[in-house]
Structure formats: C-alpha cells, structure tokens
Deep mutational scan, measured.
Amino acid sequence: MEVRTIKVFTTVDNINLHTQVVDMSMTYGQQFGPTYLDGADVTKIKPHNSHEGKTFYVLPNDDTLRVEAFEYYHTTDPSFLGRYMSALNHTKKWKYPQVNGLTSIKWADNNCYLATALLTLQQIELKFNPPALQDAYYRARAGEAANFCALILAYCNKTVGELGDVRETMSYLFQHANLDSCKRVLNVVCKTCGQQQTTLKGVEAVMYMGTLSYEQFKKGVQIPCTCGKQATKYLVQQESPFVMMSAPPAQYELKHGTFTCASEYTGNYQCGHYKHITSKETLYCIDGALLTKSSEYKGPITDVFYKENSYTTTIK
C-alpha cells in the first residue's frame, strides 16, 4: 500500500517557510505537534488534498525554529505562539472599519479597549522592536488589523473576551517599542525636605499616572512627601515624541487643539466601556464603527496623549 502524501510549508514567522512532505494517514499533531492554519487549530486533523502548498504555523520545537521565533517575536515564552494563534482565530472574524481616516474595530468580545489602543497607536510616533509587531502594525494602518490585535493580546497575556485596560495595554506595548531616546527629568520640591531631581528613561519617561493635564504637570502637581507634608512635583525636561497622561476616570474637559487623542471610560472596574476622542479640525468621538463630532467635550476621561518633541522648564 502506497503512502499518500502532500507537500506543505511549516513556519513560526510566515517569513521562513520549511518544506514538509506530510503523510495523509496521520494527523498534523502526530507529525508536527500543535499546528495552526489561519489561526485555526488543526492539530487533530489529517492532511487533505486542499492543504497542498498551504502554510501551517507550528510551535518552535527545534533550534532553527526557536531562533526564527525569537528573532521575529522577541520572546522565548513557549506558550506565546499558541496564544497568538488562538487569538487570531477570533480577531480574523472582527470587522476593521476605516473611521475618520483611522483603522478602528467594530465592537465584539469586549474589544473596546483594543480599538482605543489601536486608534491611539496610529496617532503617536512609535516604532516597535519585534519585527512581528512592526509588520502587523503597518498592515493594521492599511486596514488589516487582525494579526496586530492578536499579537497585542498575546504580548499582554490576554484572551479574547476578557476586559482590558488601555493604560495597561499601552504599557505592555511600550515595553516592546523603541523608547531608548526618551528621557524625563522631574523635580520634587518640599518646604521641609528641599528639592530632589529624578531622571527617568524609556517607558517611565512617557507615562504618568495622577493627572490628565500635561500643562498642569509642567506647572506642578501636589504629591505627598515622605515627611508627610505636601510637596510639588513638576516637569523639568521632556525628550520624547509623545507623552501619555493618565488618571482614574473623572469628568474632564478636553479643549480642541490642546491634545492629540484621549480615552474615555464609562462604567466601573468590573464592567465598563471605552471610547476614543481625537482632536482634528474639530473633536471626534470614535466608538467602534461609530463616529460623532463636537466642538467641545466633557466626560469621564482616563488617558490623554500629547505630541511632544523637546521641553525644558522655565521655572527657576
């Protein structure tokens, strides 16, 4: 009895394709271990004539594949690729409408935090270190965002349907971005203890939790000093293409032309909904596939993004 075979390709990165001759009487799992086709788990399936010449994702289970996976995804987590594939199996079914010149995501599976993050990423200057993220990001900007969303979920250790947080998501993504040249110098002034300067680099240099107003941050924000008295913390120097200011959701007025974009969060910790506000020729609110415009805006804002380049204080 002759062994019926077909020729397929296996890959971990969709760049390096490895030619395989597979036995049609055995499952993919018996031949390769966990195997995925377009995100779908085909591990328990036997090869079919229609699979001839198709590319299958496999887990990096030998040295060659491990090197290829690390170079593309910059992670050695053995569960990463499987999590990416199972997320992709959902995100490829989502709709990605162009809204006001940006790629958004039609609401499904509690994905409003991903839509808000995706919209924000198209408006701030950011370059990702893992080629996987950078490639998928370019495709997302062009309207094909399924891979990018699935990668975000995998890097953030999230599953489809789980509630997510924009600030946490951005923080994970910033860790995989090139923020080497970003720098922030802060000064804390206390009447009792004097003053202390701190220099922050990388992710810490672009994120701040405690106030939404970048102007206020430049002037000074009140913080408790270690001595128990009130101290003032203010920005001395900022070198970065953008800054992200966050605070627990509270009524906040966004003035046209003073910011790049913002995240609105309605609801409580267990259950809520994100919308995205962007400042173009007027203010726009993007909620999944829905767009509304207004000249002014007041609502429960939790993150505001500002364009920056270089700032030095005039406070002496």
Rank of each mutant, 00 (worst) to 15 (best):
S246Y: 00
T103W: 10
S294V: 15
T116P: 01
N111K: 02
G228N: 00
H48D: 15
F32V: 13
T313M: 15
E52T: 11
P241H: 06
T27K: 06
V99N: 09
T159D: 09
P248Q: 11
A115G: 09
Y84W: 01
L173K: 07
G53R: 12
E68H: 07
P60F: 06
C193I: 05
T282A: 13
G164C: 02
N110T: 00
D63V: 11
V185R: 05
V42H: 11
N16P: 03
C182T: 02
D62H: 10
E162R: 02
G143V: 03
M245D: 01
G39Q: 09
K280W: 05
Q197L: 08
C112F: 05
G288Q: 12
T192M: 09
L254T: 00
A250H: 15
N110P: 05
N16T: 09
L200F: 10
D165N: 15
S213D: 12
T278P: 01
E71N: 12
K219R: 12
F56T: 09
C261A: 04
K54Q: 14
L290V: 14
Q98G: 06
E281L: 02
P249Q: 03
T282W: 08
L126Q: 04
Y297V: 04
A87W: 10
K255V: 14
F80A: 02
K275I: 05
Y36E: 07
L200I: 09
V185D: 01
M170A: 03
L119D: 06
W107L: 05
Y72S: 10
K280H: 10
N309G: 10
K293L: 07
G39M: 08
S213L: 05
V12G: 06
N100H: 10
A247S: 07
T198S: 10
Q230A: 13
A250T: 14
D38G: 08
Q216N: 07
L212V: 09
E144F: 05
I301F: 00
V206M: 01
V42T: 08
V236K: 03
S171M: 12
Y137V: 05
F242R: 03
V221W: 05
T91A: 06
L290K: 14
C149N: 00
Y72M: 10
R139L: 12
Y155K: 03
P241T: 07
T302M: 00
Q195C: 07
Y155M: 06
H90T: 12
I223S: 11
G33R: 08
Y265P: 00
R4I: 13
A247W: 00
T76A: 14
T120R: 01
